Simulated assay, not measured.
Amino acid sequence: MTQHIHFISDLHLTQDRPENTQRFLAYLESLSSDVSALYILGDLFDVWVGDDDPTPPNEAVKTHLAKVTSKGVKVYFLAGNRDFLVGKKFFADTQVVSLEDEYIIDLFGTSTLLMHGDLLCSDDVEYQKFRDLTHTPEWQQSILSKPLQERLAMAQHYRQESHLNKANKSMEIMDVNTSTVVNYVKKHQVKRLIHGHTHRPDIHSHIAEGEEIERFVLAEWDHSGSVLDWSEDGYQLIELS
């Protein structure tokens, strides 16, 4: 049986978009036995304020992920800029494996770097400073110690600010910086990079130390779902209506 590995990102699951949740749950239920691993590269949730938040669709997603992992599918999660507070209880309940921000796999013989993608957008200096702050243990501990309703209100405030900030920034600033991409590729000595975040699905080619490097940008799940399917025969894009 041919082994398949799936990559997805930027589903932004929220109770405001129930059709997206249903699409994801149906996708999980449809996974065939030849899919050995699923890599979720960030922003599975539009917001995550702590593992104690029962706001839909959190519990339904956890239940379905637990069913998938119980069947032997390895599910990996690399946090995005919206759900970096996903914590130990989530991983214990689902048996999903937490990955670091920069994670390398051997993808059918090719060393491949997995990232969410926000670290690649180095031209957005304001965001990078905010990211540095929010990823400190002190900041996270301070936030998670607050009452749930206060955290939810803060998340709503941050979301509104984020939308306003995006409206005042050029698309170039919010996209990846090519030099930063090459630096990460050289740092990890890989031949391929897969990431999401920018919502600009495409396949790019870069030159690092005289070698051609592939960069796959995963699509946002908006009006449809998108899965990058990889096997020993190569890759294909699966669109979920």
Rank of each mutant, 00 (worst) to 15 (best):
E29F: 05
S179L: 14
I203R: 15
Y184G: 07
I238D: 04
D101T: 06
L240G: 05
R192C: 12
D202H: 13
I238P: 02
E211K: 13
G42W: 00
L228N: 00
D43H: 08
Y235T: 08
G234L: 01
D34A: 05
A26N: 07
D16N: 11
Y27A: 07
H163I: 11
P201N: 13
S170M: 04
D93P: 01
E220Q: 11
D46C: 03
H4N: 06
E212A: 14
I8F: 02
T14D: 04
S9G: 12
F45T: 08
G42A: 06
P18R: 15
V61L: 10
R200I: 00
T63Q: 15
I5K: 11
F108Q: 07
F45E: 06
K166Y: 05
V217I: 15
V47Y: 12
E211V: 04
P147Y: 07
R131V: 03
E126T: 06
A26W: 01
S32T: 11
L85M: 15
L113V: 05
V125W: 07
P201K: 13
T136H: 06
L218N: 00
Q3F: 00
I203Q: 15
L148A: 12
E100P: 03
K89M: 10
D118T: 08
H4T: 07
S111N: 11
G80Y: 02
V47G: 13
S98E: 09
E150C: 01
A167K: 12
I5T: 11
L11E: 00
L144W: 07
E161Y: 07
M154H: 11
G72N: 05
A155S: 15
I213T: 12
I194D: 02
K166P: 00
E220R: 10
Q128R: 12
Q3G: 07
S111E: 09
E138Q: 15
T94Q: 09
L85C: 10
Q95L: 11
V49W: 03
G87M: 04
G196A: 07
S145T: 12
C121T: 03
V217A: 08
W230F: 08
K191R: 14
V49T: 13
F77A: 00
H204E: 00
D106M: 01
S226D: 01
D101R: 08
T178I: 08
T136M: 05
M115K: 06
N58F: 09
D52E: 10
E239Y: 01
A60K: 10
Q141N: 14
F90I: 04
R131M: 05
H163Y: 13
H199P: 04
A153R: 04
P57H: 02
E29K: 08
G109W: 15
S205G: 13
H197D: 11
T55K: 08
K186P: 00
H197M: 04
L85I: 08
S142E: 13
I207C: 14
L28Q: 09
S36L: 03
T63E: 11
R159H: 15
N183Q: 11
L28T: 09
Q160H: 07
H223V: 08
L99R: 05
V176P: 01
V68S: 03
T136Y: 03
E214W: 13
K71F: 05
H197P: 05
F7K: 03
T112S: 06
L148N: 13
H195R: 05
N81S: 04
L28E: 02
D233R: 10
H223K: 14
V86I: 15
T134W: 13
F7M: 04
V96S: 09
Q3D: 13
N165R: 15
S162M: 03
I194A: 04
S170C: 06
L218W: 03
